[in-house]
């Protein structure tokens, strides 16, 4: 930056002020005072003698950007010297100071026609222009450096975004797997219960039927045993509390019967049970007691067949529900999709 020592500047100021044809006047200014406004006419050129003046340029949105500072020895209004257009910049005093101001036309007239004026002002003008050009070059370099840094930051940002995207995808995948795991565990629970029922019912039916092959029932008892089967088949499971209550009533009435048999009898419809109990108690022969035992066995087979129906129905419901949650757009097999 070109700076003019105060003493020569003061000499120039005094020389210019002493020339009446320059029409120059001292203009003091206060800190914060706006000395030139962008877009407005400004017909004077001023030589800063003391103080500092900030220059601003506004963008299309009206936002102000600092573009430089005028110091003693520099001219305010230099850009308007030849064109006479409206002001390109806004000037606001950073500190209090003063400047020597003269009409732009007078300044030009004297510059071209008065050799003494030219000798005094010429070097100052040249110094101003060189200073501003250097500043422009420096700004270009700064802009180039900033552009490079910006490009590097942009690349880094892109890399970070890619990493974030990859991490996000990984997390989504993990979340999907975790959800799938919970879903599978839930399905396992829902299916394992009916499977347990099915498996145990099948084993128990086999055990029950094996007894029939060892000791087949009498033909005369088949009607009664068929009734037992249907009773079991159509029986609804009792709530545990009701079952406990019935068991508690049966135990003192039949202290000789084992608890598992009493538990089965507790499941029988009370009216049917009483009829059965009367049939045995009224004439407690060995045959009738044996028939009671068989009746309960067949009743149990009926309940087991019902259990198989309930359990297989439950598994069917689960499978139907699972078919309902297949991904959107997927074509079910057998409806145009490849098998």
């Amino acid at each position: 930056m070109v700076t003019i020592p105060i003493r020569p500047l003061e000499k120039i100021r005094n020389a210019l002020a002493s020339m009446p044809e320059t029409e120059s006047v001292d203009v003091p200014f206060a800190a914060g005072e706006v000395l030139m406004r962008e877009g407005e006419r400004h017909d004077h050129i001023s030589l800063v003698i003391q103080g500092e003046i900030d220059l601003f340029k506004h963008n299309a949105e009206g936002e102000a950007f600092a573009v430089g500072t005028l110091r003693p020895g520099q001219f305010l209004g230099l850009l308007l010297l030849s064109s006479g257009d409206t002001s390109f910049l806004t000037a606001r005093a950073r500190t209090a100071g003063r400047m020597l101001s003269m009409p732009r036309n007078t300044f030009l007239l004297l510059l071209y026609n008065l050799p003494g004026f030219n000798q005094m002002v010429g070097p100052l003008l040249l110094g101003n222009l060189v200073s501003r050009y250097r500043r422009v070059v420096e700004l270009h370099v700064e802009v180039a450096q900033l552009s490079q840094e910006l490009a590097a930051e942009k690349r880094q940002l892109q890399a970070t975004i890619q990493q974030l995207e990859a991490t996000r995808n990984r997390l989504i995948q993990q979340e999907k797997m975790a959800t799938l795991g919970q879903l599978v565990a839930g399905i396992a629970h829902e299916i394992n219960n009916p499977i347990a029922s099915l498996s145990r019912a099948a084993d128990s039916i086999e055990t029950g039927l094996q007894k029939w092959f060892v000791t087949p029932p009498r033909a005369a008892d088949l009607a009664l045993l068929r009734q037992a089967f249907l009773e079991g088949l159509n029986r609804q499971p009792l709530q545990t509390e009701v079952q406990r209550e019935r068991l508690a009533q049966l135990e003192p009435r039949f202290p000789d019967l084992p608890r598992p048999l009493l538990r089965s009898l507790a499941q029988v419809e009370p009216a049917v049970f009483e009829e059965l109990a009367y049939y045995v108690i009224s004439n407690p022969t060995v045959e009738r007691k044996d028939l009671l035992r068989r009746w309960v066995e067949v009743f149990e087979v009926g309940t087991l067949v019902r259990t198989i129906r309930v359990a297989s129905g439950r598994i069917g419901s689960i499978v139907r529900s699972l078919k309902g949650v297949q991904p959107a757009g997927q074509v079910p097999r057998g409806r145009g999709g490849s098998a």
């Binding site: 145990r200 499971p237 309940t303």
Partner: peptide, 17 residues
């Protein structure tokens, strides 16, 4: 599950003596 409960109790019947 009533059916499962019945199966468990039925399996444990030998212990009920």
């Amino acid at each position: 599950e009533p059916e499962v409960l019945e199966a468990v109790v039925r399996d444990l019947a030998p212990f009920e003596v």
